[in-house]
Design a protein around this nucleic acid. Sequence first.
DNA 1: CAGAATCCATCGCGATACTG
DNA 2: CAGTATCGCGATGGATTCTG
Lengths: 124, 124
Amino acid sequence: MRDPANPVCRTISTLLQRIGDKWTVLVVSTLGEGPRRFNELRREIPSVSQRMLTLTLRNLERDGLVSRKVTPSIPPRVDYALTDLGCSLLKPVNALSQWALDNVEAIHRAHARFDTEQDKAEAA
Amino acid sequence: MRDPANPVCRTISTLLQRIGDKWTVLVVSTLGEGPRRFNELRREIPSVSQRMLTLTLRNLERDGLVSRKVTPSIPPRVDYALTDLGCSLLKPVNALSQWALDNVEAIHRAHARFDTEQDKAEAA
DNA sequence: CAGAATCCATCGCGATACTG
DNA sequence: CAGTATCGCGATGGATTCTG
């Protein structure tokens, strides 16, 4: 059950990695507010590069979490939106974010404690 | 609020990355069943290398999620366990895993659909 | 506007060998 | 038993340039 060869386990692992990658959650939570065009997303997430936004959206589309609607006009228009599946992911993701928010300070205290003990250890 | 320069946002991002890395969730969920020694963890997670298990545990300890109790005997004995903070993380993480379990098939269908459409596109 | 393609620095991670 | 140290490959991701 904890065996990474187990296909179910691998699927979970893959999902967690996607959640953990640099831009996915940012994009998903932005789309959680409503559909966006490509450059709208870029503006709302200023630090994402064009390349990474494209890759992130492709992965999300492949997972069935985001829909991509192309309007072949000039200039072209592409609208991204969460699918129902994508929306359903919002809840557990937000729960995790909320946990992080609730425990930011505890984590920082833990870091400080750990790091000072580390310093004492190497001073010796 | 969505600005990666925002320290709170960075903390969330860091946590999500930790969740997303290859071994953290496996280790945390194993420790969720009770305290374990180093090599017990290795046996229960056969594919983890010594190095990565050490690093994963160090990070978890630094975050205050896992406690490390050394018994200086010969041979030495080290017990790892979830802290209260670590336990509290279990719930949102399990929620996410459960979501993945519930939607494994939907995701696989999405992959299949996406990939065949990809093939058609490049065939043209 | 919404990308695709290319180049390149960095890093995660595994394999291996050594230690108190 | 529970680590640490070193090496090296492949993947990740940023910057830049080109396109329909």
